[in-house]
Design a protein around this nucleic acid. Sequence first.
DNA 1: TTTCGTTGTTCTTGTGTTAGTATAACGCCA
DNA 2: TGGCGTTATACTAACACAAGAACAACGAAA
Lengths: 111, 111
Amino acid sequence: MKLESRFWMTVDGKKVFGKGPCILLKNIDRLGSLNKAAREMNMSYSKAWSIIHGAERALGYALVETKSGGLDGGGSFLTVEAKRLVRAYEEFSKEAEELVNKLYEDYFKDF
Amino acid sequence: MKLESRFWMTVDGKKVFGKGPCILLKNIDRLGSLNKAAREMNMSYSKAWSIIHGAERALGYALVETKSGGLDGGGSFLTVEAKRLVRAYEEFSKEAEELVNKLYEDYFKDF
DNA sequence: TTTCGTTGTTCTTGTGTTAGTATAACGCCA
DNA sequence: TGGCGTTATACTAACACAAGAACAACGAAA
């Protein structure tokens, strides 16, 4: 029996940012392309696109800069705000998970 | 911008118990009836039933005792194991939420 | 000017989940 | 015995969500 946890940010009840968008952003950063990131994650392009732009609308600022055209077709790149957000969320959720897992051990050690 | 968190227990990846089943069990305990609890939560009886029995199957022990027939039609009542589980989960998740919210303030105070 | 792989956008299709319905069994009481 | 409000279970309809297709725009290079 194992604990799993999830953390996400909301603005008046609406989901704004969480694990899924965070992973997607990291993959976009690594691959330089929303298309490639979506394919690697077995996610449709349109789904990936709507995740990113839904988060942008909710947050009120851009997470990716895009470029279309050119030899390589273009690509997507994280804004500095997105990089900061990803870093903060990752560090936070890592530590939160550890904390919560310790607490779980305390409360459920004799279950 | 507010943090929301969710915690649930799993057995080899499968969800076993979490917030939803916990609330449902509390309502069953309070109302003495799965039917009444489901109606109060705007949930179909069949959905409520499958939540409870799915959790029982995954956990390997009974969470509710049921009685059908009689003047009042019967009802559902929590087993001692269910009461213990609900209490542990509630205390755990309350403290976990507080901890995680404090941590969130630290990491996101200047966002 | 053509080719290419992106982004951006809309629409249709399929799938999985949930609600809702139907039906039987139960047991106390009038 | 008949009525009632439960539990228990199966089946069907409706809805939400995701996949995927389709198509235009873009811009660098051949």
